[in-house]
Design a protein around this nucleic acid. Structure first.
Lengths: 220, 220
DNA sequence: CAAAAAGTGTAACATCTGTTACACATACCA
DNA sequence: TGGTATGTGTAACAGATGTTACACTTTTTG
């Protein structure tokens, strides 16, 4: 779920000009220190925000006040660009810095101008949003799996398809539990059972898949 | 979750011309009978599809083969337009007709052309997609509530905010259970307990909220 | 109108998950 | 290096949900 390959910065085509952005673009830049709340869930989203330095995490506050981890975002990438144009243009998630960060802000009108005048900008915007939607859909699928082992299996198999049968997951159990929307001890129990059953092995944060068939059976 | 007020048909501005669409637009129309699978989950999405007649439901196949109900779509509305531009342009859901339906198909290149030449078309497309994303986010929030009563309460309070404290839900228990991602008898049990506790009353498909405070407490 | 289909209420039971608590290990910091 | 904070393993227990089964009601259809 961590975004390792930035898929969009919006201004690839202008990089040579005068550093980063089109010369005539109106924008502002805001800096944040580590562990600072950048956007509050429900806050109005009236501009396009692009994380150009550092990393942040996004979390959704469930109605009981718990936090459901969504994803970790590393620069450069836009933050929740989909909501800029929604009728109820509010942030659906909390955004908090994980390290010192720098955020570019482009007013909505300016975005519309860029969109109509720069077809490449528009296409990238569309593609990025489409990919975001697909991510959310995937997230939905993960949450719809009822058993914890099923969620783990889904997650590990997905990782495996990208990184092979041995890989590192840079999240501790508490974060993983938040990501899955389950209690931490419950996650630990499921993990240790899966290790005992020999379908996976865990060494610190390195996970090895030992029995893909067995993992797939856990999805049911 | 049922979409009663179509928010976008894409061609408002052309309605007078020659019936429905811009005269020079390339498109095709496909008809489907009731209970027909229109799009398979995972199928390639290479064009913009707009439901212009009838209604369909969308469902996500979870990995165990179960169905997770997503929403009911009534014409006119585009079908999964967000995925047209994603890198992995595949349908994330099954789409099945609920009644006889008619679907307009516009090739991707044509959509891009319309998008760049018709700013209004572009804005509507963006807004629609943004609203869709918000819907998905809301769905995510619903699924992240752990207790069944909590999900019911969330859902009923949401309905209530739109339609007052007495309203009709056009879904049977099986469909509702699918929507919540829970087992049907479990849903029935929770519902009858909520009735016994006096927080709601149910008459056929008419629901009445009797104790909003009590409902909100169920969210925790 | 009658039969079939679909939908609903409910029970018993097994299973899974959350909660709480605590010991232990590991990483971090002064 | 020693102490503190953070992270992990595990247990006991309570509570919630899924599963299966069946009777009953309502709706649909011929």
């Amino acid at each position: 779920m961590t975004n390792n390959n930035p898929e969009w910065v919006g201004f690839n085509q202008f990089d040579e000009d005068n550093g980063l952005f089109p010369a005539d673009m109106s924008y502002s830049i805001q800096n944040y220190r580590k562990n600072i709340l950048v956007f509050r869930q429900g806050g109005v989203c009236d501009a396009l925000y692009i994380l150009i330095q550092g990393s942040v995490k996004t979390e959704m506050i469930t109605e009981n006040g718990n936090l459901l981890g969504i994803e970790i975002i590393k620069a450069p990438r836009p933050l929740a660009p989909a909501f800029l144009f929604s009728d109820n243009n509010r942030f659906p998630v909390e955004v908090t810095t994980l390290e010192d960060a720098e955020v570019l802000r482009i007013p909505k009108e300016e975005v519309i101008r860029l969109m109509t005048s720069q077809p490449d900008f528009m296409k990238q915007f569309l593609t990025h949003n489409a990919n975001r939607t697909q991510f959310l859909t995937n997230r939905l699928q993960l949450l719809s799996i009822k058993t914890i082992k099923g969620k783990i299996a889904h997650f590990l198999l997905e990782q495996s398809s990208e990184h092979g049968s041995k890989f590192v997951i840079n999240r501790n159990q508490t974060e993983l539990a938040g990501f899955f929307g389950v209690a931490r001890p419950s996650l630990a129990r499921s993990l240790s059972e899966m290790v005992q059953d020999g379908v996976i092995s865990i060494n610190k944060k390195e996970y090895t898949l030992l029995n893909n068939k067995g993992l797939r059976e856990l999805l049911l």
